[in-house]
């Protein structure tokens, strides 16, 4: 599949933006898969963390349609195991922020089931990751 020049520019801009927000070198990833192997939430993800990294290397904006960054629990396991020292948790945060900064929240905070039993710590942490 051959890409037109303006498509390449858009993709490069997208990866650059993710690198800027996360402070990580996306192209350092050599697809070893350790992040995916250690991720505690991987079974619920549309695309596993190492796949997200690969798609980002191609500037593929379909990563924004995957649920990966929303299922991510910011546990930093991927961070500490990456042999290239890539902070993948920061990459996930960058993807979340790209969506949230368009003023679209990931949850409707007014419609939380069972809010009576939830401790503040859970709500505060959740809203920090799921709302802008």
């Amino acid at each position: 599949m051959e890409l037109k020049e303006d498509e390449i520019a858009k993709r490069e801009e997208f990866t650059r933006r993710v690198e800027e927000l996360s402070g990580q070198n996306i192209f350092a990833c050599y697809q070893c898969g350790r992040c995916s192997a250690g991720c505690p939430m991987v079974s619920k993800m549309d695309a596993i963390p190492s796949m997200i990294m690969r798609l980002l290397q191609f500037g593929d904006m379909r990563v924004l349609e995957k649920n990966t960054c929303w299922v991510c629990a910011s546990c930093y396991t991927c961070d500490v195991r990456c042999p290239k020292g890539i902070d993948i948790a920061k990459v996930m945060e960058a993807l979340r922020q790209i969506k949230l900064r368009t003023n679209i929240n990931n949850i409707d905070i007014g419609k939380i089931e069972g809010i009576e039993e939830l401790p503040q710590i859970a709500l505060i942490a959740n809203f920090r990751k799921n709302t802008g």
């Binding site: 505690p40 939430m41 619920k44 629990a73 546990c75 949850i107 942490a125 959740n126 990751k129």
Partner: peptide, 15 residues
């Protein structure tokens, strides 16, 4: 040292 699911307890309780 496995994550308990953290803040997913709000909107992804099953996890």
């Amino acid at each position: 040292v496995e994550c308990c699911g953290s803040y997913h307890t709000v909107n992804m309780k099953d996890v």
